[in-house]
């Protein structure tokens, strides 16, 4: 049987875990774009969190830990769905396609029209986000909507920090491209608005290494 101390620990765990319900559900809804599926995902997340809560290190961030469980479940779901789809539709390589997109809308001129995204409505941005491939949608949701750090996102998704940075760069670019297309279609901006090329995604570690090397030379 469980001691009072353990009961108290359990209660604290539950009290804290339930605080993240809205954040988890809100994110799940944007991930899946389907309320019923989002509810199942969140419910399954809590069931799993309880089952594996002895693996949670109390000194660490419970919110990030719960997100990791939810994103794990989601990634497994889309993997299963993809496996099913591949039989019919063949292999898809969203990352490859995204890499071939022209690098637009990254570095603006100083024309106010460039801030087209500020003229857009919530449902338009939500729709554009929902159309991103899952890899991009996940990092944009975690970084821009939930405010997680690169390191936390790396832990949540189980991918290296470098991959987080490049996915975030490309995910934002893809989102901006979609919003730009909407903005043109809705007449928020004119067709002839200038776009300039941007630099390829940078690597924070490479920059730090270069900087360290520079210092050593001095």
């Amino acid at each position: 049987m469980f001691s009072k101390r353990k009961d108290k620990q359990y209660q604290e765990f539950c009290d804290q875990a339930v605080e993240y319900l809205d954040a988890l559900y809100g994110t799940a809804l944007r991930l899946t774009s389907a309320p019923a599926r989002a509810e199942d995902l969140v419910q399954d997340t809590y069931v799993r969190a309880l089952r594996f809560r002895d693996r949670f290190d109390p000194g660490t961030n419970l919110k990030a830990w719960m997100f990791r469980i939810m994103f794990n479940l989601f990634i497994n779901q889309i993997r299963r769905e993809k496996r099913g789809r591949q039989i019919k539709e063949g292999h898809e390589q969203p990352d490859m396609l995204q890499r071939m997109l022209p690098d637009e809308h990254m570095a603006p001129t100083s024309r106010p029209e460039e801030y087209f995204f500020e003229k857009m409505f919530s449902d338009e941005v939500i729709r554009a986000l929902s159309e991103l491939t899952s890899d991009f949608k996940m990092v944009v949701l975690l970084a821009d909507v939930n405010g997680f750090s690169y390191k936390q996102i790396s832990d949540i998704l189980g991918i290296p920090v470098g991959t987080v940075m490049s996915r975030l760069h490309r995910g934002r670019r893809a989102l901006r491209d979609k919003l730009h297309a909407f903005a043109l279609a809705e007449g928020y901006i004119r067709q002839d608005s200038e776009e300039s090329e941007s630099e390829p995604p940078a690597d924070l570690e490479a920059y730090r290494r270069r900087k360290r090397a520079g210092r050593e030379e001095e």
Partner: peptide, 26 residues
């Protein structure tokens, strides 16, 4: 751009039924 995305993608609160379900699970 980052602020615009954040402001336009609100996180909707969990429905009451889901909250009850989660509380029951806990």
């Amino acid at each position: 751009f980052k602020a615009a995305v954040r402001a336009r993608v609100p996180l909707e609160p969990a429905p009451a039924a889901l909250r009850r379900q989660v509380e029951q699970t806990l």
